[in-house]
Write a protein that binds this DNA or RNA. Structure first.
Lengths: 248, 248
DNA sequence: AAGTGGTCTAGACCACAGC
DNA sequence: CTGTGGTCTAGACCACTTC
């Protein structure tokens, strides 16, 4: 507008907006405070709402904001550190892990990636245990745990187990096995409809997908696919856990 | 419009589009193949280009597509597994790590999160080594490695070291120290302008930020902030590495 | 009913790669 | 130069929460 327009690099508006908003969040807003609504903010900065939203999306991705339909946009607290690998070499469901069993079924429809890791034959049935993880009164992760049926023959004695009891039975059976080791991958994904509901997010929300393979007697026995809310979680490996950290 | 409008759950168009495209990618396209351009695709599906782009964005986030301005949209290869923690308990720069030193400077401007982890006093100067990591002919990560000056007094003997030589000197000095342990966090971030250039992406691209703290004699000596391309990388911990995996 | 964020449209122009 | 993806606009309507 003015004469001082000397920008050599035409930075995108939403990018500039993001940095401006980010600074404002640091200086002028407290955690939990609600921002003006998107239409007002867009007008204030002289941009279209879509552009303003692009900036907000980035800030939400970085865990700075939280947006809820029908409610508004609030300043997010620092990301919570959640320990992956709380104690080395324990089975899922071991005493002291933060997961809550939800239910369990038997299925033969595994994602191809899981089938490969578990080394199951096509059509082979496995236990599928659903679990959820809560931290600081908020759901932070949803998990699908696939367990080879031959490794944990749960439910054979009392057939009409209800679903949650079956989950406990499968987890209990796991604890009896030797655990040789485990390995993990972490990647970015987007929440499936079911995960999204469990995590209190919209479908497609960014999640950190942690895939863990448990090996017993040289054979893959269980595979856990855990999806963590990427906006609110910081995965920790090792001793560190509590300190907040915003590294980007 | 028609009479057959019986959808109980009005799924967003871009979400439905995404699943349709995802299936098409599996069945009708080979890795590296180029898709029709966005205007054509939007017309073919009868949606606005912005809506089509929302679907493409998701697929790119999940590592299914690769988009390059001025070129086009291509089907991405499966994510490459990159090993974080190649050997337990080695310093950065140890023989056999995949990182290339870029340069090094001395600075006293640390991000607050890094300053807290390194336990530096305000204004205290540290070494800052930049490194980059390449896998399969592609840059996959950029790193900022902060090293306490008192732990690695590099450059004291030959003051006018050039920048890359200084980087090697700092890394070399690290190898001489005892390494008590290390801990890590992984979180989602967006690429800063400089990272983006190094990773061949646009600013704001999603990245996995791995923060590692190295402890020697009970004191934090170095902190590495590594940003990995979230679209193309799958971080691996443990033995597993090569198998492709799409878990979402 | 009112107000919020979420979706969608139909256009325009810009930055970049490749010829 | 042409064609690609990236940015931006001004508007509309929808889904949801809250009062």
């Amino acid at each position: 507008m003015g004469i001082t327009q000397l920008e050599t690099a035409p930075e995108p508006k939403y990018w500039h907006l993001k940095t401006v908003l980010s600074d404002a969040l640091d200086k002028e807003f407290a955690v939990g405070e609600i921002l003006p609504n998107e239409r007002d903010l867009a007008a204030r900065f002289g941009v279209a709402r879509a552009t303003l939203r692009q900036a907000l999306e980035q800030l939400e991705l970085e865990g700075r904001l939280q947006r809820r339909r029908g409610v508004g946009t609030t300043v997010a607290p620092p990301r919570v550190g959640v320990a992956v690998e709380p104690a080395r070499h324990t089975w899922p469901g071991a005493a002291g892990d933060d997961w809550q069993p939800v239910d369990a079924i038997e299925t033969d429809e595994l994602p191809t990636a899981v089938a490969r890791l578990l080394e199951t034959a096509p059509g082979e049935a496995v236990h599928l245990v659903r679990r959820s993880r809560v931290s600081a009164q908020q759901p932070v992760a949803a998990e699908l745990l696939y367990v080879r049926a031959d490794a944990a023959p749960a439910g054979a004695d009392a057939p009409p187990l209800d679903s949650v009891a079956r989950a406990h039975a499968v987890l209990g059976a796991l604890q009896e096995l030797d655990l040789d080791g485990q390995d993990r991958t972490v990647e970015l994904g987007s929440a499936r409809a079911e995960d999204a509901r469990q995590l209190d997010r919209l479908p497609g929300a960014p999640v950190l997908v942690v895939t863990t393979r448990y090996v017993s007697r040289g054979r893959a026995v269980a595979v856990a696919v855990s999806t963590y809310r990427a906006d609110t979680c910081r995965l920790t490996f090792g001793e560190r856990e509590t300190e907040p950290l915003l590294a980007s």
